[in-house]
Design a protein around this nucleic acid. Structure first.
Length: 381
DNA sequence: AATATTTTCAACCGCAAGCTT
DNA sequence: GAAGCTTGCGGTTGAAAATAT
């Protein structure tokens, strides 16, 4: 294959286009069409290479180009298509009238990708991350706890706590393994897609999606990890922390109330997994005993929503800012596939290089995570 | 208000597919 | 079938804008 000469030869202009250049290009194309891009600059009186002219036209000057913020529907479309197609920006762009591949690519790299990473998901595979970084929120939370404890404990107590935390991490690993092996052993039939199925709880979806990487769907009836089972498993860990007076994870089973109002997830003020949402979700925890936005904890510690996805913990020494414990739940769900697992081994390493069917179905949970309905209290029990 | 840092996005670059000769 | 050419694609860059200090 031959290669076209690079356009930086012969002192052709590069860089931003001036309004005059734009006008020349538009005038020429409106009169004559673009024809051969290579020949166009000379005909249009532009000191640019054809490649630059084509790019300017297709990405900026074409009359049907839509500019401005991406709508929520467009975001959903991009997320879904990216989970199926990978970085096939031009293919994605064909489903978004008026949007260019370049614009979508930029939007992905500057907004959506970051958001997925923040949520603990691999932006390429759309799977919960299993590497070191996926546990970062948990480690940060631990660091925060440790810092907190420094204000309340002696060095010996501090050391003991670190050991207990290490045990907790081991328990979490074990839980992940149990969740995984149980689900893999029973999810052999796939009949119903979980896409747009509001009856599936988010928790089950996350866990199942993270495990069933090779299935486009799972049978709800045969799903071995029910909401309550999963929730109880997760909760057993947090309850252990209650016993250990861990202020970060002292939300006991009956203290978690999920608002029964039906709002889009990103607007809900009471939700189970706020860390899965928009960068500034409205987060609050409620207690059956306490008022909205406040949860009473052990040792007279109260957490309060500060509208910043964090919890402010008020203890005897005053306000204390710490990382949301809900990020721990991210780690739980995200690390549910061990490297040795047969299921996880089927996950494509690079989305752009895989075919669509092998993992496209797992994408169906994305719109739910971003925009889905809130988890209802009834769904948990 | 000034400066530093971060974010955004238009444009560039190299590669490869597909068409023509 | 091989070589040359054109076009389109996706990764990357860097200047401008926005935000933080």
């Amino acid at each position: 294959m031959g290669r076209s000469p690079c356009c930086d030869e012969n002192g052709l202009k590069k860089g931003p286009w001036t309004p005059e250049e734009d006008q020349k290009l538009v005038d020429h194309i409106q009169k004559h069409g673009h024809g051969s891009w290579r020949a166009l600059p000379k005909l249009a009186g532009l000191n640019r290479c054809g490649k630059s002219c084509r790019l300017r036209w297709t990405n900026y000057l074409k009359p049907d180009i839509k500019r401005g913020k991406f709508s929520q529907e467009e975001e959903q479309t991009i997320l879904h298509l990216h989970s199926i197609l990978g970085n096939k920006w031009s293919a994605i762009a064909t489903h978004l009238p008026g949007r260019t591949d370049n614009e979508i690519k930029n939007f992905w790299n500057t907004h959506l990708k970051k958001r997925l990473i923040q949520m603990g998901f691999d932006p390429m595979t759309h799977q919960p991350r299993t590497d070191l970084f996926s546990t970062l929120p948990y480690l940060l939370a631990l660091a925060s706890i440790t810092d907190f404890m420094d204000h309340h404990q002696s060095f010996d107590e501090h050391s003991l706590r670190l050991q207990l935390e290490a045990v907790q991490l081991a328990k979490i690993q074990q839980l992940n393994y149990l969740l995984q092996s149980t689900t893999i052993s029973t999810t052999t039939t796939t009949t119903t897609t979980n896409n747009n199925n509001n009856n599936n709880s988010l928790l089950s979806n996350i866990i199942s999606s993270s495990i069933n990487t090779n299935n486009n769907s799972y049978d709800q009836n045969n799903n071995s990890i029910t909401d309550i089972e999963a929730f109880n498993l997760l909760n057993s860990i947090t309850n252990n922390n209650v016993k250990e007076n861990n202020p970060v994870t002292t939300f006991s089973h009956d203290e978690i109330i999920v608002d029964s109002s039906s709002q889009p997830l990103h607007q809900s003020s009471n939700m189970l997994l706020p860390h899965l949402l928009d960068p500034q979700p409205q987060v609050s925890l409620t207690s059956s005993q306490s008022s909205l936005n406040s949860t009473k904890l052990d040792q007279g510690i109260t957490t309060t929503n500060n509208n910043n996805n964090d919890l402010e913990v008020m203890g005897s020494e005053g306000d204390y800012h710490m990382i949301s414990p809900w990020n721990i739940t991210t780690s739980l769900s995200s690390s549910s596939s061990l490297s040795s697992s047969p299921a996880s081994s089927s996950v494509p390493l690079n989305a752009s290089s895989s075919n669509t069917s092998s993992y496209g179905g797992t994408s169906s949970y994305w719109p739910e995570l971003f925009y889905g309905n809130p988890i209802m209290h009834d769904e948990l029990y």
